[in-house]
Design a protein around this nucleic acid. Sequence first.
DNA 1: CGCGACGTTGATTTGCCTCAACGATTGTGG
DNA 2: CCACAATCGTTGAGGCAAATCAACGTCGCG
Lengths: 193, 193
Amino acid sequence: MHQILTEIFKDTSFTESEEALILKKLKKKTLIKGEFLLKAGDSVRDFFYIHTGCLRTFFVDDSGKEHTLQFAVKGWWISDYIALFGRGDKLAVSNIECIKDAIIYGVSKKDFDTLLIEIPLLSQIHIQNMEYSYAHAQKRKLESLTLSAKERYKIFVQTYPSIEQSVKNYHIASFLGITNESLSRIRKEIASE
Amino acid sequence: MHQILTEIFKDTSFTESEEALILKKLKKKTLIKGEFLLKAGDSVRDFFYIHTGCLRTFFVDDSGKEHTLQFAVKGWWISDYIALFGRGDKLAVSNIECIKDAIIYGVSKKDFDTLLIEIPLLSQIHIQNMEYSYAHAQKRKLESLTLSAKERYKIFVQTYPSIEQSVKNYHIASFLGITNESLSRIRKEIASE
DNA sequence: CGCGACGTTGATTTGCCTCAACGATTGTGG
DNA sequence: CCACAATCGTTGAGGCAAATCAACGTCGCG
């Protein structure tokens, strides 16, 4: 079995022919820090598995402020899901930026939908992933409603220790929904505890 | 075809035997206003399709404040998705309350998972729904990051005109993540525009 | 080395919350 | 069917967490 499939699908046992079908659709890409995988306004067709490195999805609002929606490191998938999964015109509302040199594997949603039908086992896995992601998104929403910025930061550090290393403070701030200055003050407070 | 399947699945064409399989798993329930479908701490096994009426999912935080995560009217599904789809112990973190007399159809996740395997077409529909829900959740998250309480309220009224009728102001406030008093002031401002 | 990007700190502002009081509406028992 | 209580919505005063605006030190890279 091709190494990357083992990595992506862990101990899932596809048949040889299923593996071949999937492999045919995966397109390897290498990115360097600072490179953009997607810019707002582009049409969104693909999503991407992160093999190495780190990327983020962020939205720029009318006042020019950035809002980070997602970080992705090894083992995660990234895209502009609002466009890709929404019922709109599939134009990106967000940007995807490489923040640490990366090797990724892309697959188009069109190809993926075909694979889902050809390979029932893949459907099952996708459903599980979607369900889990949805639960996780709900949980994060709850946290943002009930917790203070300081508590959210602490949870972030615990939850994503591997990400904290690769990213700038202002990336984290924009992910937590606070300003750089506020994060700076929070870090100071925590350090003095 | 049984009326309720037509309602739930619109123009999807299941075979007779597929329909029978699904129908066998759906359990009809009637609820009256004020009744609880689920309380925090219960174990979560089912999700529910709303035929008539209105329900909401809400979380109560440590300080006793309520946070409404979801409203559901005709055509929507409701559950505690954090518990049902999460990897935890399946104990409800939220409550589900009937806020307008309702007729609903429940199905257990266990039964549903079985149906997904037995009926590939159902898998496809479920995937589409999950994808769309995920996109929608992301969009809402963006809105809560970028918009003021007033703008969020305006979007709420536009997006859920049918819900606004059935619910108390403080339900809406807790959905928008603001206090009753703030919502009251916002409504006053908008009225005077 | 020098410049720009990044992080920190201070002063001030602001949107929303909290607390409190008081009408309006709803619903319920007599 | 009315009276009264409970619930709900509104309004005001004051407070607070985080935003904004501004200045400055520092680090890393060309």
